[in-house]
Design a binder for these strands. Sequence first.
DNA 1: GTGGTCTAGACCACG
DNA 2: GTGGTCTAGACCACA
Lengths: 113, 113, 113, 113
Amino acid sequence: MQFDKNKPIYLQIKREIKERIVRKEIKKELPTVRNLAKEVGVNPNTVARAYRDLERDNITGSRVGKGTWVKGRAYSKLQKEMVEEIVDDFIQSLYSLGLTLKEIKEIVEEIDD
Amino acid sequence: MQFDKNKPIYLQIKREIKERIVRKEIKKELPTVRNLAKEVGVNPNTVARAYRDLERDNITGSRVGKGTWVKGRAYSKLQKEMVEEIVDDFIQSLYSLGLTLKEIKEIVEEIDD
Amino acid sequence: MQFDKNKPIYLQIKREIKERIVRKEIKKELPTVRNLAKEVGVNPNTVARAYRDLERDNITGSRVGKGTWVKGRAYSKLQKEMVEEIVDDFIQSLYSLGLTLKEIKEIVEEIDD
Amino acid sequence: MQFDKNKPIYLQIKREIKERIVRKEIKKELPTVRNLAKEVGVNPNTVARAYRDLERDNITGSRVGKGTWVKGRAYSKLQKEMVEEIVDDFIQSLYSLGLTLKEIKEIVEEIDD
DNA sequence: GTGGTCTAGACCACG
DNA sequence: GTGGTCTAGACCACA
């Protein structure tokens, strides 16, 4: 995995996990701390910190000896929350530049990539 | 001014200035370092650093005793650059969640705020 | 049964058993390891560990083929010990916040739940 | 500072800080991470973790280069929250042993330590 | 084998 | 000088 060196790695891992959950690549069990650490090439502590954050946000649960898993209702909640946040930030950012909602919609309509 | 504590203040000030330029609230003269520092409630050093960055990015020019001003072609360049970056990030973020361009456009169309 | 994830399950089970003894819901015979494991939804090993602890603390006795039982004087001893510990912890915790015994007593008097 | 080896040190530090705030021994500025680490004899990372937790709980704020401080309304909120939690736990624990509110109140009235 | 905690030591950018 | 991040490596108790 490639990391943006300007952002904390543990936050990038956290986001990656959340995206995998929303894309349904992770349905229940998360990789173990050590396995993911090896996979992405970082220290296990760094992955553990991302996992701690996810659990604090009520997205995952864990138990020593049992592993880490996605909580029951996390998927649908996550999907909705993340899309909303991204859209809100987008609108807000363009508002800050003085664009109107009409102009924003026109810009998006013309995207063809 | 409210600052997001996860991002360096000097970068938030820099962005604020750029937004004011794009919104044409600043047309030529920037506030003095001291005045802006007082206005947003931070150390003058922090504002000075933002100003240094803006000059390095060729957006502003300055001379001792003459203050700081927006360079000639900065406005149109800035406007285009910032909008592009915001839109690209937006599309990329939703792609990462598995959405298609069609779905993204539908979401934006339905915004009514 | 609901478990506090910050405490070892076997300790929570141990406590649950002790509470049942003090509440006289268990007078002599303890449930078998397997039955209790099924009842509370954990691995029998975890229950077995709790039972081992109880026996080590001289609260229960067991013999193969005869099951596990509460020892003769355990009830009154347990009752006294547990209440004392809870009360001491309570007083100590409020002392740590700077409250006086008088204030603590007033708080308790006003409870009406 | 003495630590209970059965509980995570960072949680004990967190609690200690909260108690100091409620007792008004800390009014605004917290000790720096490194100073507190030296004072209590643990690794700075351990103190940093406690501080992170406090900030997550909206009790403190911090900035790199500026230090850590108690947030404006944290004191009164903390005082109330901590007392409530301790009292609730106390009542709940004795309920679990089968005591009635009347019995609990009698026990507390008789404390003379 | 699992997550959790802790130490030691390093580096970084902010203010 | 400050908090924040990261690595390396160790130990622990739980399941």
